[in-house]
Simulated assay, not measured.
Amino acid sequence: MAKAIWNNQVIAESEHTEMVEGNHYFPKDSVKTEFLRPSDTHTTCPWKGEASYYSLEVDGELNEDAAWTYPQPKDAAANITDHVAFWRGVTVTV
């Protein structure tokens, strides 16, 4: 089981993640959305499309842009539709 942990809190937990470029993408329904805060940040990947970011808030601490998703990925990345990945100090254990 893969887990995404930040600030001693499990943010996401799933038996089935998608691995892309070394990142675990968790199904959105396995993510504890109460810790996600929408961000205005967007980036573009040439083969995945436009990413939208979330900041994480746990126990009053904010980790800006620590999660991202591709709301409408390009066909080559269709497997990460409705999935969320993490970075910036978020530990993913398997």
Score class of each variant (00 low, 15 high):
2 A>P: 00
74 K>F: 12
22 G>C: 00
15 E>Y: 02
66 A>P: 03
79 N>F: 14
33 T>F: 06
81 T>M: 04
89 G>Q: 03
17 T>Q: 05
25 Y>V: 00
43 T>K: 04
29 D>L: 09
45 C>R: 03
80 I>G: 06
63 N>A: 15
7 N>W: 01
47 W>M: 10
76 A>V: 13
48 K>H: 00
64 E>I: 10
66 A>F: 06
91 T>K: 15
50 E>P: 00
34 E>A: 06
20 V>W: 04
27 P>T: 05
79 N>L: 15
54 Y>S: 05
85 A>H: 01
20 V>A: 07
45 C>G: 09
20 V>M: 09
13 E>A: 03
51 A>C: 04
77 A>M: 08
68 W>C: 02
9 Q>Y: 00
93 T>D: 11
10 V>D: 06
88 R>Y: 07
91 T>D: 11
58 V>L: 13
54 Y>V: 07
55 S>Q: 08
80 I>C: 11
92 V>T: 10
49 G>N: 10
57 E>D: 11
16 H>P: 02
17 T>S: 08
19 M>F: 09
53 Y>K: 11
91 T>Y: 02
52 S>D: 09
86 F>K: 02
59 D>I: 13
22 G>V: 00
68 W>H: 05
68 W>V: 03
52 S>G: 12
26 F>D: 07
58 V>C: 12
65 D>K: 09
81 T>C: 01
73 P>N: 10
57 E>I: 14
25 Y>P: 00
27 P>R: 03
